[in-house]
Lab assay of single mutants.
Amino acid sequence: HSHMSHTQVIELERKFSHQKYLSAPERAHLAKNLKLTETQVKIWFQNRRYKTKRKQLSSEL
């Protein structure tokens, strides 16, 4: 499990705020920019979407 830097997370968050789903080319581009693997980016987005979904569910209770 590799640790992401604060800067990388900020960039991922910024991208996520604009779009929740990335196409393969977008993911490849973002990964390259942030010096991450595409898998890391993919998993981060999956986890981030899951967290957002959970938060929405709990706020509706």
Rank of each mutant, 00 (worst) to 15 (best):
H1S: 09
H1R: 06
H1E: 08
H1K: 15
H1M: 09
H1Y: 11
S2V: 12
S2D: 11
S2T: 11
S2G: 10
S2Q: 07
H3S: 08
H3L: 10
H3N: 09
H3T: 09
H3A: 09
M4G: 00
M4S: 00
M4C: 14
M4N: 01
M4L: 07
M4T: 03
M4K: 02
M4D: 00
S5W: 05
H6R: 11
H6F: 07
H6P: 13
H6V: 11
H6E: 09
H6Q: 08
T7D: 12
T7Q: 12
T7M: 11
T7I: 07
Q8P: 00
Q8S: 01
Q8M: 05
Q8T: 05
Q8A: 06
V9L: 12
V9S: 04
V9I: 14
V9Y: 08
V9D: 02
V9N: 04
V9M: 15
I10N: 08
I10E: 14
I10C: 15
I10D: 07
I10M: 14
I10P: 00
E11L: 06
E11V: 08
E11R: 04
E11M: 06
E11G: 04
E11H: 06
E11N: 03
E11K: 07
E11T: 06
L12D: 01
L12M: 03
L12H: 01
L12W: 02
L12F: 01
L12P: 02
L12E: 01
L12K: 01
E13D: 05
E13N: 04
E13Y: 05
E13V: 07
E13A: 05
E13G: 02
E13T: 05
E13F: 05
E13M: 08
R14D: 05
R14W: 05
R14H: 12
R14S: 12
R14Y: 05
R14E: 04
K15A: 14
K15L: 14
K15G: 04
K15R: 14
K15I: 14
F16M: 00
F16A: 03
F16W: 05
F16Y: 14
F16R: 04
F16T: 01
F16G: 01
F16Q: 00
F16P: 03
S17R: 11
S17H: 14
S17T: 06
S17K: 11
S17Y: 07
S17L: 08
S17A: 09
S17F: 15
S17I: 06
H18Q: 06
H18I: 07
H18P: 01
H18L: 12
H18T: 11
H18G: 05
Q19H: 06
Q19C: 15
Q19W: 07
Q19A: 07
Q19N: 09
K20D: 01
K20R: 07
K20T: 05
K20I: 04
K20H: 09
Y21D: 03
Y21G: 02
Y21K: 05
Y21E: 01
Y21T: 06
Y21C: 06
L22C: 13
L22K: 00
L22F: 02
L22E: 01
L22Y: 01
S23G: 04
S23R: 03
S23V: 00
S23T: 10
S23W: 02
A24E: 08
A24M: 05
A24Q: 10
A24R: 09
A24D: 03
A24F: 10
A24Y: 13
A24W: 12
P25W: 10
P25D: 14
P25I: 14
P25M: 13
P25E: 13
P25C: 14
P25F: 11
P25R: 12
P25A: 13
E26T: 02
E26G: 02
E26K: 04
E26P: 01
E26F: 02
E26H: 04
E26Q: 11
R27I: 12
R27Q: 09
R27T: 07
R27A: 12
R27L: 11
R27C: 06
A28K: 10
A28Q: 10
A28L: 09
A28C: 13
H29D: 11
H29L: 14
H29C: 11
H29Q: 13
H29A: 10
H29P: 02
H29V: 12
H29Y: 10
H29T: 13
L30H: 01
L30M: 04
L30R: 00
L30N: 00
L30I: 11
A31P: 01
A31F: 03
A31D: 01
A31G: 02
A31K: 00
A31H: 01
A31N: 03
K32N: 09
K32E: 10
K32W: 08
K32V: 11
N33G: 06
N33C: 15
N33V: 13
N33S: 10
N33I: 15
N33A: 14
L34Y: 00
L34H: 01
L34T: 03
L34W: 02
K35M: 11
K35G: 15
K35I: 03
K35T: 04
K35E: 06
L36Y: 02
L36F: 01
L36N: 01
L36C: 07
L36I: 04
L36M: 08
L36P: 00
L36K: 03
L36H: 01
L36W: 03
T37P: 02
T37R: 02
T37M: 03
T37N: 03
T37E: 05
T37I: 03
T37K: 02
E38H: 03
E38A: 11
E38Q: 07
E38S: 04
E38V: 09
E38W: 06
T39K: 06
T39S: 13
T39E: 14
T39N: 11
T39Y: 12
T39R: 09
T39D: 07
Q40C: 07
Q40K: 02
Q40I: 05
Q40R: 04
Q40N: 03
Q40V: 06
Q40M: 06
V41K: 01
V41R: 00
V41P: 00
K42N: 10
K42A: 12
K42F: 06
K42P: 00
K42L: 11
K42D: 05
K42Q: 10
K42T: 06
I43C: 13
I43M: 10
I43A: 05
I43H: 06
I43Q: 11
W44F: 03
W44V: 00
W44D: 00
W44M: 00
W44C: 02
W44E: 00
F45L: 00
F45A: 00
F45I: 01
F45K: 00
F45W: 07
F45T: 02
F45N: 00
Q46A: 13
Q46G: 04
N47K: 14
N47D: 07
N47L: 10
N47A: 11
N47R: 15
N47E: 15
N47Y: 14
N47S: 07
R48E: 11
R48W: 06
R48S: 04
R48T: 06
R49G: 00
R49H: 05
R49A: 05
R49N: 03
R49V: 03
R49L: 04
Y50Q: 11
Y50P: 03
Y50G: 10
Y50K: 15
K51D: 11
K51E: 15
K51R: 09
K51P: 05
K51V: 06
K51S: 08
K51F: 07
K51G: 08
K51C: 15
T52P: 15
T52S: 13
T52N: 13
T52C: 15
T52K: 14
T52G: 10
T52Q: 15
K53E: 15
K53A: 10
K53S: 10
K53Q: 06
K53W: 11
K53C: 15
K53Y: 10
K53L: 08
K53I: 10
R54V: 10
R54T: 06
R54C: 15
R54S: 14
R54K: 14
R54F: 07
R54G: 15
R54W: 08
R54H: 14
K55N: 15
K55T: 14
K55Y: 05
K55Q: 14
K55W: 06
K55P: 15
K55S: 13
K55A: 14
Q56S: 10
Q56N: 10
Q56D: 13
Q56R: 07
Q56L: 15
Q56H: 11
Q56Y: 13
Q56A: 07
Q56E: 13
Q56F: 11
Q56M: 06
L57E: 14
L57K: 15
L57N: 14
L57A: 12
L57H: 10
L57D: 14
L57G: 14
S58M: 09
S58A: 10
S58P: 12
S58L: 15
S59E: 14
S59A: 09
S59H: 13
S59K: 13
S59Q: 12
S59Y: 09
S59W: 08
E60Y: 07
E60H: 07
E60M: 14
E60P: 07
E60K: 08
E60R: 03
E60G: 14
E60S: 08
E60T: 05
L61T: 15
L61F: 08
